[in-house]
Design a protein around this nucleic acid. Sequence first.
RNA 1: GGAGGGAUGGCUGAGUCCGGUUGAAGGCGCUCGACUCGAAAUCGAGUGAACGUUUGCGCGUUCCGUGGGUUCGAAUCCCACUCCCUCCGCCA
Length: 421
Amino acid sequence: MLDAKFVRSNPKAVAEGLKKRSSDISLDNFLNLDEKRRSLLNEVEQMKNKRNTVSEEIGKLKKAGQDAENMVLEMRQVSQDIKEMDEKIKEIEANLQNELLSIPNIPHTSVPQGTIEEDNEEMRKWGDIPNFNFEAKPHWDIGEALDIVDFERGAKVSGSRFTFYKGLGARLERALINFMLDTHTRQHGYTEIFPPFIVNSSAMTGTGQLPKFAEEMFKLEGRDQYLIPTAEVPVTNMYREEVLEGEKLPIYHTAYSGCFRAEAGAHGRDTRGLIRQHQFNKIELVKFSKPETSYEELEKLTKNAETILQKLGLPYRVVTLCGGDLGFSAAKTYDIEVWMPGYGTYREISSCSNFEDYQARRANIKYRESKSKAQYVHTLNGSGLAVGRTLAAILENFQQEDGTVMVPEVLRPYMGVDWIG
RNA sequence: GGAGGGAUGGCUGAGUCCGGUUGAAGGCGCUCGACUCGAAAUCGAGUGAACGUUUGCGCGUUCCGUGGGUUCGAAUCCCACUCCCUCCGCCA
């Protein structure tokens, strides 16, 4: 969330940021409520001041054995008035908070102008797009033919967008998880975290999923708990309500987790294959950094994710999301898109974002430099990578005419085989 | 699931029975100063956050797990909830 004081004193800058996002949110309501809150606050604080001083006086009088009945009667009324006023303010503050939580982050100046995916700016490409002398098949056909994924039984047992992985398919999924975690921990300096897959609503609010995107998540019935849509939520919220020591920054965490998404509003999109599932595996990269280095950290984090694709030999490109395509909490995002021969296009496989202090303010994560006052950290995260989509990309990019699939060299120690099929 | 104990500032830990300068003793840590060639030890001073207000110094309000209640006044009394610990039962 944005700083209320900043919004109050820079409404123009905020409005411009919203415009860059093509957001239709208006600040008027916020500004009005804010004004109202401050004037009421002023009033009630004066009343409280009076109550405090007079109550102290009453205490003294009573101790001295004197009568204070008049004052008591007067304060009884004052207290009553304060109570009513407090209730009013509380209501306004709740609305104000809601308003503030619904305002998205302001895009960084380097974020390209634009409203749709096509306005994203391509930064770089890596790898050669495979040139098949046969017609490339989509991964679901390859996987089903090899009997390593089973969509039908997934649907029978759980519902649409659930899949069984089987045999070498299951092993490949597990190999990818281990390979990614090993690379990030051993070569990129991340500390491995194994987080809870269920979090409470405060955590969801901290990273920005709530209150706006409640319908995107699976909620546990009768409980204030949700299945996580990404490890970003538990790992970022690990340090919620904490003040970190400045010299511990930057903190690098990587985490495997299952991810659960309701995919409301995605009916008909990517109905086949592994691209859009209600449950999928992901390796997440999360960083906590000082404000002055967070954009360097974003570059490094994105490179760390790219390294996985390079080691696997999967062609990809990196794009900077335009204002209109930017996620709610992000100030800047690079998407990494892997080449999918079955689709004949690049598909998102990682999203690397700097949230600046937007999540930190919501989650109240600060750091303190030796002497100075505590201030908000910057949080960053990115997929490193989405495992199911990586598996799909491997099937499509390394498919052979005879229907077999070559196992990328770096995965062979994990797989124990060179070929699938 | 049953029985009991607990939650206070960066940490530790009093205060809670008997409500009144207690934002909260003492200790540790930290910062500044003195001493010292320097350091340790010692001594002195200081040391929370949020919000509001103010050009600034400052001032005010709120905060003792969370939310309500009683009262002129609550860390202290009452109610509900959450989390943690110990023992028993059950269980991967």
